[in-house]
Simulated assay, not measured.
Amino acid sequence: MPDKDPSPIRILVVDDHPVLREGVTSILEDHADMIVVGEARDGAEAITQFRALKPDVTLMDLQMPVMNGLEAIMAIRADFPDARILVLTTYAGDVQAVRALKAGATGYLLKSSIRTEMLDAIQNVYRGRRHVHGDVAAEIALHIVDDSLSEREVAVLRLVAIGKANKEIARAMSLSEETVKAHLKSIFAKLEVADRTHAVTVAARRGIIEL
């Protein structure tokens, strides 16, 4: 008798955009070795669906309402340490990618590469291998030896991003203006930028802050 076909990889798709969920499902419908067993619109739904379905691989967006993907990854992995989660996002920032991988994601894929790379990424993650999109991996390698911004520097930068002046930042954080200026000088050096606008742009691109 011929060998029985192996069971398809059972996949949970988590994204707040129905068009993205439909697109992923449409691609996977053509592959008998994979099947979408459930969908979720946010991190809270993802946790509920994961507990009910126990999927082999979860495709997880990061920016979602109610509960974001990072929080969902940590919650799922806390209860299911062997959960295989592949981040599927538009954000190529190295800091955000490292944050997701440290939270327990097994892979990190950009939505722009769904049609060219998603199937291989799912297979790799299912087999317990890491899969990180090439551009993201290059960014991680580029910045791996950089000094990280401190929590206070990130807090200062978030206030800069919403247009706060040094005096307003000092008041909001109970600091002196001189201390705020010192933090900004350190931020500029670490991000290799010369001004506030460029600092915000680079920090957002790398996933250090969200705009």
Rank of each mutant, 00 (worst) to 15 (best):
M1L: 15
P2A: 15
D3L: 14
P8V: 09
I9D: 01
I11S: 01
L12D: 00
V14L: 08
H17M: 10
H17N: 12
R21E: 12
G23L: 05
T25V: 08
L28S: 09
L28P: 02
H31K: 14
H31Y: 15
A32S: 14
D33V: 10
D33N: 15
I35G: 06
V36F: 10
V36Y: 08
G38L: 06
R41E: 14
R41D: 14
Q49R: 10
F50Q: 04
F50C: 08
A52P: 13
P55H: 08
L59N: 03
M60D: 11
M60W: 05
D61T: 08
M64F: 04
V66D: 15
V66E: 15
V66C: 14
M67Y: 07
G69W: 00
L70G: 00
L70W: 01
E71R: 07
A72W: 01
I73M: 13
A78K: 15
F80G: 05
D82F: 13
R84P: 00
L86P: 00
L86A: 03
L86K: 00
L88A: 06
L88M: 11
T90C: 06
T90L: 07
A92E: 09
G93C: 02
G93W: 00
G93E: 01
Q96A: 11
V98S: 09
G104S: 14
G107T: 03
G107N: 03
Y108A: 01
L110M: 03
S112F: 02
S112N: 06
I114A: 06
I122K: 02
Y126L: 10
H131W: 10
H133E: 09
V136K: 02
L142A: 10
H143Y: 13
S150Q: 15
E151T: 13
A155K: 07
R158G: 04
E168V: 06
E177G: 13
T179M: 11
K181L: 12
A182C: 12
L184Q: 14
K185W: 13
L191M: 12
L191W: 04
V193R: 05
D195Q: 14
H198V: 11
V200H: 01
T201K: 11
A203P: 00
G207A: 09
E210C: 06
E210K: 05
